[in-house]
Design a protein around this nucleic acid. Structure first.
Lengths: 130, 130
DNA sequence: GTCCTCCTTGACGTTGACGTAAACGTAAAG
DNA sequence: CTTTACGTTTACGTCAACGTCAAGGAGGAC
């Protein structure tokens, strides 16, 4: 892994601030195994990799996934793919995940379509009143 | 409203079964004011309108919205639009809502794009192994 | 009648996702 | 050296979204 020790690091307060969450939330994600920052003595050190994972976590949350499901998802990106069987497993997981995401996109598109039609009706009403 | 009394109705067990949820969940939604079925004496009677709202609720849940937010959303579709100011309020709400949904769609598209790229990498690995 | 089944209203329990407060370590600033 | 600003663990609190009894009503089947 190209993780140089001299790479930039952040404290828990800095990442919390940057992502608009509390340090308690960051630690909660660590408790659940979603991130595992290095320690410098007793203090946590966050690197680019941890921030990437945090990005993924927060996007997963915006999409309404529970945290344990988010963990299995982002862990998938780091899963071993050396053996053929391992690769096949990862590919299967990718498929499951895509099915889920595409269902959500259908729901989302439906919701947006309905919203548009509703807006049209409202605008017609408005024209009638004016 | 064209709600005829002879229209088809369902019991709580029937709607629960049909939507794949428990009667407790249905009642919970009623407690929060998301649906308000008629009563025939003491028993609940669900009509088409209630089932439509249930559809919307469950889709909202699949999209990760909290229940109280779902309520304000589906209530919007029944909000009064007689006066000009009321209509304008509804149109503003529609805009807020669309902004939210479009953000979610961006997140969703990003997630799907990343997933596709990851699958490509995995398939390359697989080809290399084979 | 009396089962049986489905319905009702409480009310307490549980799980996820944190908030919050206590009690303490540490390292630079004055 | 003490203060101040962070950091740490441990632990209990909270809120949403239900689950899970408990105790009982109402109407058909027999």
């Amino acid at each position: 892994m190209p993780t140089r020790a001299d790479e930039q690091t952040w404290t828990i307060a800095q990442v919390a601030e940057e992502f608009g969450i509390t340090h308690r939330t960051v630690r909660h994600y660590e408790d659940l195994g979603l991130i595992s920052p290095e320690r410098h003595g007793t203090k946590r050190l966050y690197r680019r990799r941890d921030r990437t994972r945090l990005q993924l976590i927060l996007r997963g949350k915006r999409l309404g996934f529970p945290l344990d499901q988010i963990r299995t998802i982002i862990d998938l990106y780091d899963a071993p793919r050396g053996k053929r069987s391992q690769l096949q497993y990862v590919l299967d997981q990718i498929d499951d995940r895509r099915t889920d995401l595409e269902q959500r996109r259908r729901d989302l598109d439906d919701a947006l379509t309905e919203l548009d039609r509703f807006e049209d009706r409202c605008r017609e009403d408005l024209a009638r009143i004016t």
